[in-house]
Design a protein around this nucleic acid. Structure first.
Lengths: 185, 185
DNA sequence: GCGAAATAGTTGTTGTTTCAACTAACACTC
DNA sequence: GAGTGTTAGTTGAAACAACAACTATTTCGC
């Protein structure tokens, strides 16, 4: 099996993507740490809960949406629990399972962190792109995710048309979680 | 200062980018670990050295190209040195500085790891994209990097036209490092 | 040239992530 | 309905990254 090496066009695109992938997490992390005292992953976890019905999600489901292993999530949720941002409740339907629920303090933390985060996203990602490039990026992301996340575990409820067909979570979306704009990503 | 929230188009593009950014490093890491016994970051370090003149780079310069802090790089290079893949030499011109140099074993390791890595890149990134999308990705990456890496520390010697103007490194590229194809990324 | 500031790098500590092992509950088979 | 396999999650140890403190050298200002 002979390796097919990259030509100049492929190399140019790939090197730039790698650079973005390496640089972006550090920036998001630094901003959230400084302004909200959260890592990007912690913020992501809280944001996912904030969009879930009852602000509650099973650990496994939360792990899929955040692309975390279960051990990692377990540790992070324990630390968030120690800080009073999340609570863990045994799941009544399945006594093996645990539900993670956002506390009021946790909700406040997400709401407080969101504006700074969105501003950062705008400055580093959205502003430098033309409207056409924005649309292209959506298409490229979509194409890549068919390989990177074929079962759509992480990117379940994206399409605004098909709400309500992912375990009914969007349909049962609570009033509280709609009261403010989304805590993006 | 009122926060400008994301509209649907912006949100769609951003969420997909975040998903890619979260998923890709894990995949690259897993493949390289399994097939070459290297983390993606270690591979990246070795690959940067393999493209440098004399297979040698100052620690600071290497840190910039790999987007690492100096402490992080120092630890990683020490571990690579323990494994015989890299050696550290005091720099004659500046006695504060250290040069990291790829050993023959290190070179062999990069050459052995490269085919599997390139195959992975092709499968997950290049193959799912159309030729137009590949070109769009280059443009988008370029636009983002003007903000993410304004001084072009990480992405110094990209343009094939302007070789030889980055500290003369490309100009003085040694015969050895040209003998095989690049160990990409 | 002498002292202050800046630069290059290392080392130790602390927090996080990964990995492996483990417990508990459910599900499926016979 | 006992036994086996699978799923959900936690915990502890080891690897790794971020941060702070430190040494050594060079450069800058006067």
């Amino acid at each position: 099996m002979e390796t097919q090496w990259l030509d100049e066009r492929e190399r140019a695109a790939w090197l730039r993507l790698v650079a973005v992938v390496e640089l972006l997490p550090g920036l998001l992390d630094a901003q959230l740490r400084a302004q909200a005292g959260l890592t990007h992953f912690e913020y992501f976890v809280l944001a996912m809960l904030s969009e879930a019905p009852e602000h509650t999600l099973r650990m496994t489901s939360l792990a899929q949406r955040t692309n975390a292993t279960l051990p990692r999530l377990s540790h992070v949720v324990r630390r968030l629990e120690d800080r009073g941002l999340v609570e863990r409740l045994p799941c009544p339907e399945d006594r093996r399972a645990t539900n993670a629920r956002l506390t009021d303090e946790g909700w406040d933390a997400v709401v407080a962190a969101a504006p700074g985060h969105v501003t950062t996203v705008r400055r580093y990602i959205l502003d430098p792109l033309t409207p056409e490039q924005l649309e292209q990026l959506r298409g490229i992301g979509e194409a890549l995710l068919t390989r990177l996340d074929p079962d759509r575990l992480m990117t379940a409820l994206y399409d605004p048309e098909k709400t309500g067909n992912n375990g009914g979570s969007a349909a049962r979306m609570s009033g509280a979680s709609r009261r403010t704009r989304r805590a993006v990503s």
